[in-house]
Every structure is written in structure tokens, then in C-alpha cells.
Nucleic acid binder design. Sequence first.
DNA 1: CATGAATGAGTGTTCATTCAT
DNA 2: CATGAATGAACACTCATTCAT
Lengths: 200, 200, 200, 200
Amino acid sequence: MAPDGTSLDSKGERTRRRILDAAASEIARHGVAGSSLRAIAAAAGLKTGSVYFHFDSKEQLFAAVLEEGLQRTLDLLDAALSGQPGEVTAAGRLHAAIHAHAVAVSRLRAYTVVVLAPDPTGAEIAGASFRDLRRDYLDRWTGLVTDAQREGALSGAPDARLARDLLFGAVNAVGLAGRDPDEITSAVSALLGLPGCPPP
Amino acid sequence: MAPDGTSLDSKGERTRRRILDAAASEIARHGVAGSSLRAIAAAAGLKTGSVYFHFDSKEQLFAAVLEEGLQRTLDLLDAALSGQPGEVTAAGRLHAAIHAHAVAVSRLRAYTVVVLAPDPTGAEIAGASFRDLRRDYLDRWTGLVTDAQREGALSGAPDARLARDLLFGAVNAVGLAGRDPDEITSAVSALLGLPGCPPP
Amino acid sequence: MAPDGTSLDSKGERTRRRILDAAASEIARHGVAGSSLRAIAAAAGLKTGSVYFHFDSKEQLFAAVLEEGLQRTLDLLDAALSGQPGEVTAAGRLHAAIHAHAVAVSRLRAYTVVVLAPDPTGAEIAGASFRDLRRDYLDRWTGLVTDAQREGALSGAPDARLARDLLFGAVNAVGLAGRDPDEITSAVSALLGLPGCPPP
Amino acid sequence: MAPDGTSLDSKGERTRRRILDAAASEIARHGVAGSSLRAIAAAAGLKTGSVYFHFDSKEQLFAAVLEEGLQRTLDLLDAALSGQPGEVTAAGRLHAAIHAHAVAVSRLRAYTVVVLAPDPTGAEIAGASFRDLRRDYLDRWTGLVTDAQREGALSGAPDARLARDLLFGAVNAVGLAGRDPDEITSAVSALLGLPGCPPP
DNA sequence: CATGAATGAGTGTTCATTCAT
DNA sequence: CATGAATGAACACTCATTCAT
């Protein structure tokens, strides 16, 4: 018990986290449909039934996993952008965002798979707050792409959302395949011809 | 019955096809792990057990789905490239290949999802001939990308396989989301700055 | 077709026999409950459904197997006893019967398992004529044992039917295990102290 | 709950036993191949799936049945022989062993069927410890038979293992048929002419 | 908090059986 | 005669879920 009476790391809280982590890695390995509560519980060092003390159902647990993963991804994006000097170019901000997303995919793997998928396997699983976070994240990205297009750093031909989804698809795929975020980021930037990257 | 006595479209063959199609769309919707033989059989207008007259196991059925989808994708690529005049540029051939892949994803949906994934959910499911086809397809693409890089139409910075996988990821993601193949193709070409497409 | 118009070996008759043989060896290997029509048909070089042209059901096929096995066993007993000179002793006839039974078990294996079993696994399978044959066979044996007891060659303590069943159990068990019929016969005779066999 | 806090007869333990018993009687009635988990579960007052809380698979359950049955049979043999005064004859010990075996068959029925069968239907089912127990039991019996033969109480003509298997076959068959162990024992002793039993 | 024990619906798979061809 | 194709019931087994302890 912490001296201030509030134990942020209560036993229950720590168990809950262990379950979340186990669920995330299980999802990463076998997908949402292929993950069983039994395996998750075992990986968390619990018996199956005990999970129900911390989560009301499998769906709710998975929703929590997705939400948390998305939240952390958002945090990474925030950190990356706020770390930038104000007067940076739109291309620079897009570059930073791509890197942040690649890092998120690499770190959180399963947590993030769902971000882009238009109809994620677990769509019905995700709760309202997940959908809000997702919308938030997507909108931020749309803005970044639009800015880059206005700045002339990115082709204005495709509409911003399509460009954004292509970017997500590219980064997610190779990121989940285990590629290094730095490598991914520079490859994408080079292919897009983002200013500040060596032209072909 | 065909006049020569052999009915190429025998009842069994037609049923087999119905099962394959049902399986493909089921996989597209719920993923390999989330697809049940019961649902597939029902969608094909059969009782569950009847599937076993045509396929030895769920694994084998899925392997057949993957293999057939990949084969059709390869055929589309062949058709697209052989339809090109010989003296076309590497950029032109890459453009055609992107379009073919987008069309494949759009037409075959589930059949093609697996092409890129380095460790597709159904990796253990796919048979040797599937792996051969996959290697074939990937190698063809590596060649296309390399040529375009040599020609200067594509940044030479990322290694060819990484560039190829980024392309796949991008096209697969938005293709599965239902975007029109033409739209996808021109968007990708524009973003890559492929010659013959309007710069920003 | 034979010249007399009756083809005892018509194609159908030969197929029927192949099925019976396949069923018998399948039963010998996996027992009644463990034998599948599919495997039997395959062993007979047929597709499963074709069996139904020759037998109305699995039960009927098995009944035919059992009946035929028992009939052949009875024939062996007849041959053994009728081959004996009339004035032979009861002990001699019992000896001959034991040998005949051992030979039957060795030759027919599965066919014969059911003879003794009071509630054979396939009891409900066997038809009325099988039960008649069985009763016939058992009664013949009861007579042989009784005669041997009256003659003093066999202990009169146990009632004849119990003695008979003990004999059956003994011979069946080791016979099914693959022991040579001659070996079995002389071992049993020696243990029983039947006259004409070396005492310990 | 026992006063020491450990309930040796916990609910789970009692259920496990109910399943074992149900399985044994099911095997006795329909054989290993003919026994279904459904029927066993129903007989134990459970739903099918619940069996899997106590046993990992049907095979493992059956192995447990066989092992336990054989162990109890061995215990009965031990008790019977150790209850004998030391200076008893080999014939007397054999007599006691026959009785013990008959009692085991009568009490445990299905549990014991497998003892003799050289290739029991469930051979592949039985685990290593079952095979060890079986070897143990068979060796003990071989010794008993050999001693009786050396003593002259049993014909030395057949080799000891064959004699042993004939005995098993005889006792098992009539024992499973429901005969009284005492009756069986005296019948066998009389037929073998074991000393201390009335000659014919 | 966590477990032991059970459930019912679901999974893939096998089987005996039927019947048009 | 025999097969190709289908069926429905059964099978072993898994899973999410519940609840007394």
C-alpha cells in the first residue's frame, strides 16, 4: 500500500494488466478469432474462470485490448508531433507521424492491427470509446496528409483519406512483418519523394 | 451432358466450386481461424458432412482456396504484362502490375489476402504448391520493382523486397476495403510519382 | 457362364464373398464395434455404397459373417468326428473336437470369436439362424463333455456346460493369440490328463 | 470435510471415480471401440464435455481404467498369496491365485478383460505403466504355474506361459459370463486334477 | 480474489445409409 | 452391378461462461 493510501499498483490492477498483455500477444499470434480465453488465462498465470473477475466477457476484454492499444498509439503520435519545433514543414510532420505509427505497430503489434481495417474482425467487439479514439486518430492523419498535399510535398491527386489508408496499409503490413520502424519510415519517405529524403 | 460424353461441369465439380467460393467469402469475412465448416457448408447449400465428400479436411479445403486464389492472381498478372507492347518502360509494367494486383484483390478478395502476409494465419494450412506459387508471384514482383528502380522511376533507396511489400500492403488494405481498382492504381502511381502520372 | 446354365461363381457371388472375407478380417482386427463399412468396402475393392447391393445393412452383413463362420466351424467338427472309427473312446472324441475347434479358431479367427461369448458384442446383430447354429454347436459339445465325464476321462465335479465353457474360453483365447492348433490341443489334453496323453 | 482440512473424498475425486466406474462398465458391455464418451458421461451423471475436466482425452480415460483395474487385480493376487501360510504347496498357491483372479474378473469385469489379450483392442490406448503392471502380473503367474509343474501338480508338457494363458482364457471367459468365482475355482481345480480336489 | 467443477453450444470429423445415374 | 453424391446422426473434443466454495 502506498503511503498516500491509493495503491495504483494494487494486486488486482497488476493482474488485470497481465491479462491484457497476455490477450494482446495471443491476438497478435492467432488473431482475434483464434484466441481462446483458456490460453490467455494460462499465459497470465490464471485459471480460465478467474478472468471473469476482471472482465465481464471475452468481448469486453478484447475491446479493452484494442482501446488501450489505440490509446497508446495516439500517445506516440502526440509525442512525436509535439516534439517537433513549431515551424516545421508539413512534410516533416508527416514524416514524424509515419515514424510514430511504425513504432506503434512494432511495439504494440496486435494492439494496432485493427486501426486501419475498415471492417476489423473485431468490429462488433470494439466499444463506442474505441470507435471515438479511432475516428480521432484517423482524422489527425487526414489532416497531416492534407497539409502535405497542400504544401506540394505529396501528390494531390488521390483524395486525402485514400492516401492515408494506403500509407496505413503499407506501414502496417511490413511493420507487422517485423521490419524495423526506422527502415520502414525512410523507405516510405523515399518512395513518396518526401522533401529531405534522397531522390532516386 | 456434353456431346463427347464427358461433362466438364459435372455435378460434383460444380458443388466443389460452390464450396470453394463459399469458403473464400467466409474467410474474407471472418478470417481463417474464424471460419467454420458449418457456415461454409450452409452457404454452399450443403450439410456439414457433405463437404467431406469433396475435401478431406478443413485444412485441405482452405489450402485449395488459397492455392486457387493465388493461381488466379498470377494469371491476372500474366495477362496484364503480356498485354503490354514489348518496348514498354519498366514504370509502365509496374503500373500494369499494380492494376492487376488491385483487380485481383477486388475480384478475389479473400482468396488474395494471404499473398503478402509473411506469416499468414493459415501458413501451416497452405501446402507446398501454394508456397511455390507464392514464391513465384513474389519473385515476379521483386523483378518488376527492381527494374523500375534501375530505370529511375522508383526510388532506389529501399531494397526491392521492402518496396514490394509496402506496395502490397497498401493495395491489399484499400482493395479489401472495397475501393475501385482503377482509383487505387492511379492513387498509388501518383504518390510514387511514376512517370506518365500528373505530378502534384 | 457354366455350360449347365447355373453359374455358381457368378460375378455377384464372387463379390459377395470378397465382401464377407473383407468383413471377417476387419472384424478380426478391430472388433465388431470398431469395423467400418467404408474400410470393409475398400478392402473388397468397392465403394461404400456398393455393399448395399449385396447386403441390406451392416448388421445383416455381420450376421452373415458370423453365421458362415459358425457353419464352417460346425463342418470342421463334423469332419473331425466322422473321421473317427466308431468304437473310439469318449476321451478320444473330445480330443478330436478340441483339435477341430482350435483349427477353426486359427483358420476363421474373427468368425469364431462369438461362439462362446455369452453376450457377444454382436449379439443383437446375430439372426435367428445364427442362434440355432450356436445352440447346435454348444449342445454337441455338451454331449462330448458329458460322455468324457461318464467315461471317467474328465472330472465329473463341474457341470458339463461349465466345463465346456472353460474349454472354449481357454482354446479361444490362445487360439486368437495365434498359437498353433496342434500345440494348443496337446497342451489342453495334457492339462486335463486326457488318457493317451503323457501324465506329468 | 475431514478434520485435518484435506478432504480425501473431494467432490472432484468422487466424480472422477464415477467416471472411471461408468467407463469400466461401458467397456465391459460394448468393448473399447464400442464405448462412447457420451454414454459414459451420461452413466456418470454428467454432460459429455465435463469429462474433460477430469481426463484429458478418451484415450487417457481408458488407459486409467485399464491401469486401475489391473492394479486392483494385482492387489487381490498379493492379498491371496500373502494370506497363505508359508509352507503351503505350489498347487495350493496356484489354487489361491486362480481364485483371486476369478474374484477379480467377477468384481472388476471390464477392468480385467484386457489382462490376457495379447493384443488387446486398446493396446495402443494403454500407457507404459499399464504395460509394466501387465508384465508384472503375467510374470507372477508364470512363476506360479512353473512351480506347480515342478511340484508335479500340473502337467509339465505345455510350456508355462501357454498353460498360464489357457488358464486365463478359461477363467476370464466364464468369469465375464457371470459365474460365481468359487464355482469357477473348484471347477478349474477339478479339471486340472490339482491335489486336494476330488478326482473324477 | 481465485479456483474447482460443471454446463451447453459449438467445432471438425466419421459413419451407415440412400438414391439417381 | 457399381458409383458419385448427399444426408443426418453420432463422435471426440473445445470454448465461453457460471457459480459455489
